[in-house]
Amino acid sequence: MKRPKTFINRVLHRHETYLTLIIILFSVVTANVAPAFLTAGNILSLLRGGAGLGLLSLAFFVALISGGIDISFPAIAISAQYITVRTMLAIDVNSLVFAFVLASAIGIVYGLINAFLITRFKLPALIVTLGTSNLYHGGLLQFLGTESVNVGGLPTAFSDFGRMSLFQISTEQGTLGISLFFVIFVIAIVLTWFILRHTMLGRGIYAIGGDEEAARRAGFNVSRIQYFIYAYVGFLSAIMGIIHVSMIQYANPTNIVGTILLRVIAAVILGGTSISGGRGTVTGTLLGFVLIVLIDRHLIMLGVPAEWTDFFVGIVIVLGVLATHIRLRLERKRLGELVVERAH
């Protein structure tokens, strides 16, 4: 077979190619309608503001390729954030390292609780994480209270962290630089990509997603891999919690929950990840994430009223789901697999 043809074929068959085209198209249109779009200030602010959503998308993505799902991540993020802030205030500690260590520990423990319930009792991940999400968040509000901590009361470590950036340049509009939030996000991307692509653990995550029983028989320790997955989701969510409080300089225990779930799901699903096939790539997820951030932040620039943003994100999700699964279904049919209509 001729190489160039297969190469082009391969590119044309990739979900990522189409996503990239859509992103370019969207950017060109937005840049024409709103010149503010292509300024360095806007792009750097997107990188800073999007990092939290990006971390959660990576987390949701990892759970999804393993055939599982974790919808408790917003509850974990806000719990890790608020418990950390309150602890630091209570024992009078003002250290960013302490904040990250404590938050990560909370996130990992919460993730391990999810994993314990899912693997030990063979329970559906969706229902378990729906339950624990209420357990974590309800418990937080009941036992720690609903009082929010504002800028004045917050340890200064958070605001310092929020201002830190690489390559600072001073311009007329103020100092520009790449926020540390984005640096953390990049580290998380590389880490996730490395685990999934270059470790046995990563192969195991894909294998469980493809067929759990087959993975078990191939010698993968399925429950240990699942413990890792949900702990990793908890860890990334906790980091997002710290980034979130450092960005908005305000710790409110009712934040994050409720608003972010839709966007995270949208980013991951648009990225072509399929819950029923153990498929999906980090690149795809990142492209999905970029598209959602662009849509979310710039629909207003394009003249769409703010109250319709959720609806548009919803439409984008449904179209993304359809595209991914119709392709998958056609592929299965081509391979001669039996395709039976089912609900799961």
Partner: peptide
């Protein structure tokens, strides 16, 4: 489209609620 119900209804959940908003 053979979309699992979890994913399909997570998506339409956002769509219908977004429409109501």
């Amino acid at each position: 489209a053979s979309v699992p119900a979890i994913i399909a209804t997570l998506g339409t959940n956002g769509l219908y609620y977004g429409l109501a908003i």
